[in-house]
Simulated scan of single mutants.
Amino acid sequence: MLRCLIADDHAMMRAALAGAVRFAVPDAEISEVGDFPAAWAAATATAPGLIVCDLAMPGATPVAGVTRLRALVPACPILVVTGSEEDAVLLALLAADIAGFAPKTSDGAVIEAAIRLVLAGGRFLPPRLAELALGVASAAPPPRLTERQRDILHHIAAGRSNKEIARELDLSPATIKVHAAAAFAALGTDNRHDAVTRARTLGLF
């Protein structure tokens, strides 16, 4: 059974989003919260398979709130449904590796379609956000990663430690660390989460 967390500070919007989720997944188990701290706590406690959330909620700035959600449940798709369509916010959402974005002006059928798509492993981006994503990707040539670096990033994205990756690839942990550090540098990051997020945003794997 799918566990879904809906986070929005307006009860009517939570009810509407819950209805869209139930249309897409009739037997979904739905939890509702109204601010970011409650969303973080619920995400940690329930390990949801889908999060549908607003950006403008009490407890954190929009980007910080969603970024922390992503860090708490890295494997869970996050669909943002919000009234904000500012370019800076949309670009930050891309960097946070959200699974989809739907304006609150979207009708129920669009939100339901977005839910189905992200649950199937896809990414739901409206035209404006898709244009921004293309602009970011084309602004500079993508970094070059070796086949080994890509392979290690795949393992990192799966949540494996350097020791686990070393056993899987029959290499030493020190060698894995060197390749990972080189990949991080090529991507302009200094940690695992940001490296995986940037690689996915650039379509490197």
Rank of each mutant, 00 (worst) to 15 (best):
V73G: 03
A75I: 04
C76P: 07
P77G: 08
L79D: 08
V80F: 08
V81T: 06
V81N: 07
T82L: 09
G83H: 08
E86V: 13
E86N: 11
D87C: 10
D87P: 13
D87T: 14
D87H: 11
L91Q: 12
L93H: 03
A95Q: 13
A95W: 02
A95E: 15
I98F: 03
I98G: 06
A99D: 04
K104S: 01
T105A: 13
V110C: 08
E112Y: 02
E112Q: 14
I115W: 00
R116M: 04
R116Q: 12
A120W: 07
G121S: 01
G121C: 07
L125M: 13
L125T: 06
P126Y: 01
P127R: 10
R128A: 13
R128E: 10
L129A: 03
L132H: 08
L132Q: 06
A133N: 11
A133I: 07
L134T: 13
V136N: 03
V136D: 08
A137P: 06
A137V: 14
A137I: 15
S138L: 14
A140G: 06
A140C: 08
A140Q: 13
P141C: 07
R144M: 13
R148I: 14
R148H: 10
Q149H: 02
R150M: 05
R150D: 02
R150N: 09
L153D: 04
L153F: 03
H155M: 10
